[in-house]
Design a protein around this nucleic acid. Sequence first.
DNA 1: GGTAGGATGGGCT
DNA 2: GCCCATCCTACCC
Length: 190
Amino acid sequence: MMLRFCERPTEAVARDLLGCVVRHGETAGMIVETEAYLGGDDLAAHSARGLTERTRVIFGPPGHAYVYFIYGMHECLNVVVDREGTPGCVLIRALEPLSGLRRMYARRHWNGPAIGLANGPGKLTEALAITRAQYGAPLDRDDFGIRLWDTKPRFEIDVTPRIGITKCADWPLRFVWANHPCLSKRSRGV
DNA sequence: GGTAGGATGGGCT
DNA sequence: GCCCATCCTACCC
C-alpha cells in the first residue's frame, strides 16, 4: 500500500499526503503542509547534485524516510517517492498534533498552544523525535510510519511556491490544507 | 504587527 | 570556505 502510494509522480504524492498521519512511537500528527522536490532540473532538490552518501536513499525505492540535518541543529523529514532510480521526495513541513502531546511539549521545551508544537519542518521532527537514526527507514511500520488517508479529503488545498529556497523559487510545489491553524509560521498569509 | 541576527555543524566545491 | 528545504529571541514600530 505504502509502496504503491509513493510510487507515483512527486507532486501527486505531495498533495495526497495532506491529511495522512505520521506516527513515531506514542507521538503522532496529521500532515497539513508538504513540499515536492523533483528530479530533473529542480535545482532546489538535494538530489540535483547527484548520488552521494547523503542523497543515496532518494535514488532508492519509494516509501522510505529521507532525514537530513540542516543549519547545524535541525532535522527534516522527507518521504522518498516516484519509481526507484527516479529521484523525488516530499518534505513534511507541518503537522497537527494528534497524540502524545505531553511528550511533544517536553521534547520541544514549549509552553504555548498545541498548534505550535509541530508547525514547521524542524519543529515536527523534534516533537516526534525523528532524527537521522530514521534515515532510510520504511514508512509502513507501526512504530515509525505514515498511515494513509483512504477517503477523499474534504478540505481545500492551496498550492504556492516553496519556502526558504533560492533556486527554482517560484515553482508552485508547496501544498497546504487551506487555512489550517497548524501551517508553518513562515508560510502564513500565502 | 514586523524584521534582523545568531546559534551551530554537515555537505560539497 | 561557503551554503544551507530553520527556529528563536530581541528589539522596533
